[in-house]
């Protein structure tokens, strides 16, 4: 029941999808569409599971007054206020609070949208923006042309960095039209379109073969690591 039934479910579902690829007709195609729709619904439950887990973990930390419990309380406050504002579609307009279960969730009057705009949006975009500082620092500390391979990597990066700004055309504007292909922007475009494409394609082959073999192992029950070690 704990490992055999899940393995059978995986086998049946996975096989059905493969069969449908070769025989895209009823009943296979209909069943595949149904299963894909079910997948979407179950994926939605997965988000609830994720939120539930987060609330449980931080709830425990607050209840037992563990180190950093104050921050867990902040996390829970953000979580529950967003949840209540969103599920009940609470709106704030002209100084009055109200709720509208039938309303469009994207309505800017909903407090849910206000929290998205003023907490979620700056949070997520700043976290990614932070990386610009670290990448600059890493460029200074670690990016060295120690050998041929490293020099190639560095040279390509410099061509791209210059070629993707308006400095690139200015620096090589003196080249005659017959040598236009040697301008920095042309070089940057060429590097992207040919050698980079070739390298990425080789990586893509490797990734594709890896995913195909792993999927086969999972469907055939050879790899059951996703079911966990313990019963």
């Amino acid at each position: 029941m704990k490992r055999t039934v899940p393995s059978i479910i995986t086998f049946l579902v996975g096989t059905l999808l493969i069969v449908t690829f070769f025989i895209p007709h009823k009943p296979f195609s209909k069943l595949t569409d149904d299963f894909n729709t079910f997948f979407d619904i179950i994926a939605a439950f997965a988000f609830i599971l994720g939120g539930g887990n987060l609330a449980r973990m931080h709830g425990k930390r607050v209840a037992s007054r563990q180190a950093g419990w104050f921050y867990s309380a902040v996390c829970l406050a953000g979580f529950f206020s967003m949840l209540i504002f969103g599920l009940l579609k609470i709106r704030y307009h002209d100084g009055a609070l109200g709720w509208d279960l039938k309303g469009d969730l994207n309505n800017a009057q909903f407090l849910f949208q206000q929290m998205w705009e003023y907490i979620f949006r700056p949070g997520t975009s700043t976290i990614y923006a932070l990386l610009a500082f670290f990448i600059a620092s890493a460029s200074y500390r670690a990016f060295r042309a120690r050998n041929t391979e490293a020099a190639l990597l560095l040279g390509t990066a410099l061509i791209i960095l210059l070629g993707r700004t308006f400095v690139g055309p200015i620096l090589t504007a003196w080249l005659p039209p017959s040598l236009e292909f040697l301008t920095i922007p042309s070089l940057a475009n060429w590097v992207m379109a040919w050698p980079t494409q070739a390298g990425n394609r080789a990586i893509m082959f490797g990734v594709a073969l890896g995913i195909v073999s792993l999927s086969l192992k999972v469907i055939l029950g050879i790899d059951r690591s996703h079911l966990g070690e313990k019963d």
Binding site: R144, A145, L154, T165
Partner: peptide, 23 residues
């Protein structure tokens, strides 16, 4: 946005060159 973008690229190129010169 290409204005700030360009200056940041140039600064990073400068840092890479400086790092390599130091080495």
């Amino acid at each position: 946005r290409m204005g700030p973008q360009t200056w940041a690229h140039l600064a990073i190129i400068g840092l890479i060159i400086l790092g390599n010169l130091t080495t």
